[in-house]
């Protein structure tokens, strides 16, 4: 069978079981409207507490999930923070980022011990850094979008992943974050990958014991700026 006949076979079987016909406006219109309007469902109260409360909830939840979270006032404070974090974990002072313009604005040169490389993630990367476009405080979840600014491979290949987010980008709910993406990418359109990350990689597949660093990063370090 060709793909088009297999397609008809499945769709016809659905319509037969539902007792409907193709092209019924009374069914198509509400469905299409839902896609255009994407109405909100229930959003938990904890995701609607305002900016200040969201940042502390974000912080608390993410740490509870095994991440390390730090907050600095300005971008200028980032290099020293990164250097200190890498030192304290006995990691090389070397990391990779994409072309993100916010990360590019950081005065890395002030901390010459740090070496920043650029490009997509490599299997040999020990430390990488990305910037999150938004976060949902309700579960301490960062939204990272694919592209040359922040290649997806940076999120998964290294042992240690550092994510930077501006305080103002920490929102309450997932819905808030998706709306932020809709503002950037348009309606009904997303970048190739959106990674919602809520901590370091983990597994409990052996005797239900939680171990960090299954395949992705063992350490997840989040820097809030602002």
């Amino acid at each position: 069978m060709s793909n088009s006949s297999q397609r008809s076979a499945v769709l016809d079987a659905i319509r037969l079981s539902l007792g409907v016909k193709e092209g019924e406006k009374s069914r198509e219109t509400p469905a299409r409207k839902r896609l255009e309007r994407h109405p909100h469902n229930i959003v938990p109260e904890r995701a609607r507490r305002g900016a200040k409360a969201s940042i502390s909830l974000f912080n608390e939840t993410l740490e509870g999930q095994g991440a390390t979270v730090n907050r600095v006032k300005t971008l200028a404070a980032v290099p020293e923070l990164v250097a200190a974090y890498l030192r304290s974990n006995n990691l090389p002072a070397e990391f990779r980022t994409g072309d993100d313009n916010l990360l590019a604005k950081i005065p890395w040169g002030k901390t010459p011990s740090l070496t920043r490389q650029q490009g997509r993630g490599q299997g040999s990367d020990a430390v990488t850094m990305s910037r999150a476009i938004a976060a949902a405080a309700e579960t301490g979840t960062l939204f990272l979008t694919s592209g040359p600014d922040n290649p997806t491979t940076l999120n998964f290949l290294p042992d240690t992943h550092i994510a930077l987010i501006r305080a103002g980008d920490i929102l309450g709910s997932y819905e808030d974050a998706w709306n932020r993406l809709r503002d950037s990418y348009g309606e009904r359109s997303l970048p190739r990958a959106v990674n919602l990350i809520s901590g370091p990689s983990r597994t409990a597949d052996i005797e239900q014991v939680i171990v960090m660093g299954a395949h992705g990063p063992r350490r997840f370090f989040v820097i809030i700026v602002g």
Binding site: R120, T153, L190, S201
Partner: peptide
């Protein structure tokens, strides 16, 4: 509360993307 990774994938790598698959196929099973 939420799994560590919730990944939303839409199509293959875009022209400007440095990574991601060149082809993206979905097999819908009945």
């Amino acid at each position: 509360e939420f799994a560590t990774y919730n990944t939303f994938s839409t199509g293959p790598k875009r022209p400007e993307d440095p990574d991601g698959p060149e082809e993206y196929h979905v097999v819908l099973l009945d």
